[in-house]
C-alpha cells in the first residue's frame, strides 16, 4: 500500500489557516486564508476567476470563488455568504482555526483577450467577489491594459460589498469606477438604479478592441449582455462566470454538467458565444 499512499490524490484537501476575517455586510464574511505549509502557500498560483474547494471535515465541501489576485501571493481571500450547511460552519470559525482546501480549479478569465484592450467589468451583487480578483490583477499590472471601467450594482447601500476599498478606488485616475444601488438612502453618494443604467457613463469605445466581463445573479446576465451588444462588442469578447452545484471540482462527479461541458473544467468562465451553443448555460 505504500505505493498507493504515494499517489497524489486530487480529492485530498490541504490544511489552511484562517489568518483574518471580518464581516463585509450582514451574513457576508471576508476570509483571508493561507496554506499551513508555507511552501505551498507561496507556490499556490492561480488565475483570476478560478475557484477552490473548501472543506470543513464532517460538514462537507463546496466551491468558493477566489477573490484575491494572484499578483499578491501567499494569502487567499474569499467572500462568503452564509447560506447553507458548510457556510454556517465556516461562520463559526475564528482566526487561526483550520479549514481544508484544494485547487485552484476552473479555467479563470481569459486574460490574453484583455491585454492591450479596453476592459469593462460589470458586477452584480455577489458577482463582485470573483471580479475583485481580476480587478486587482488589472490594477497591479495596469500598464498591460488600456482603459478600465468597473461597474458595480448592489440592491441597497447595506448590501454593497467591499465599500471602503471600492470607494477609495474612486480616487484613482487610471480606472473609472461607477457604482449604483437599486434602492438608495440619504447617505448613498453614488447612482441609484439598476446596473445597466451606468452604461450611459461609458465614453465611446472601439468594440473590437474591448473585452467585457460580467458576473452576477442569473437574472442579470441578459440585461447586461444586451448593453454590451448595443456597444457592438463581439460575442466572443464577452466573458461571464457561472455558478453550479459541484461535488468534485475536477470533472468527475457530473453535477455541474451543461450538455457535455463541465462547469468546473470547461468553465466557470464562458464567453457569450459559448452560451449561444449551450442553451442551458444562462
Amino acid at each position: 500500500m505504500t505505493l498507493l499512499e504515494a499517489i497524489e490524490n486530487p480529492f485530498k484537501p490541504k490544511a489552511a489557516r484562517i489568518v483574518r476575517h471580518y464581516d463585509l455586510i450582514k451574513d457576508h464574511r471576508f476570509f483571508q486564508i493561507r496554506h499551513i505549509d508555507m511552501k505551498k502557500a507561496m507556490s499556490f498560483s492561480y488565475n483570476p476567476g478560478q475557484f477552490i474547494m473548501l472543506s470543513i471535515p464532517g460538514v462537507g465541501e463546496s466551491p468558493f470563488s477566489i477573490s484575491s489576485t494572484p499578483s499578491r501571493p501567499g494569502i487567499l481571500e474569499l467572500g462568503v455568504r452564509r447560506v447553507g450547511k458548510l457556510t454556517e460552519s465556516l461562520f463559526q470559525k475564528r482566526d487561526n482555526d483550520v479549514v481544508y482546501i484544494r485547487g485552484p480549479y476552473g479555467n479563470g478569465f481569459k486574460l490574453d483577450k484583455m491585454v492591450d484592450r479596453d476592459l469593462i467589468i460589470v458586477a452584480g451583487g455577489l458577482g463582485v467577489i470573483p471580479l475583485r480578483s481580476i480587478l486587482y490583477y488589472v490594477l497591479d499590472n495596469r500598464d498591460q491594459f488600456k482603459r478600465v471601467f468597473f461597474l458595480y450594482g448592489a440592491r441597497t447601500p447595506n448590501e454593497f460589498l467591499f465599500k471602503t476599498e471600492f470607494f477609495q478606488l474612486k480616487n484613482r485616475k487610471d480606472i473609472e469606477c461607477l457604482y449604483t444601488v437599486d434602492k438608495s438612502d440619504a447617505e448613498w453618494p453614488h447612482a441609484t438604479g439598476v446596473v445597466t443604467k451606468l452604461f450611459k457613463n461609458i465614453p465611446e469605445i472601439d468594440p473590437r478592441e474591448t473585452t467585457a466581463v460580467v458576473v452576477g445573479p442569473p437574472v442579470m446576465y441578459k440585461f447586461v449582455i444586451d448593453e454590451f451588444l448595443k456597444l457592438k462588442i463581439p460575442k466572443n469578447q464577452i466573458q461571464l462566470s457561472l455558478e453550479r452545484r459541484m461535488k468534485c471540482g475536477i470533472g468527475k462527479c457530473g453535477h455541474c454538467a451543461i450538455e457535455h461541458l463541465y462547469t468546473c473544467m470547461d468553465g466557470p468562465v464562458f464567453t457569450y458565444w459559448d452560451t449561444l451553443h449551450f442553451r442551458e448555460l444562462i
Partner: peptide, 13 residues
C-alpha cells in the same frame, strides 16, 4: 474516499 481526524484527511484505498 477518505477518513479525517485532527491531522487532516487520509485517503482510504
Amino acid at each position: 474516499m477518505m477518513n479525517f481526524d485532527e491531522k487532516g484527511f487520509t485517503p482510504d484505498y
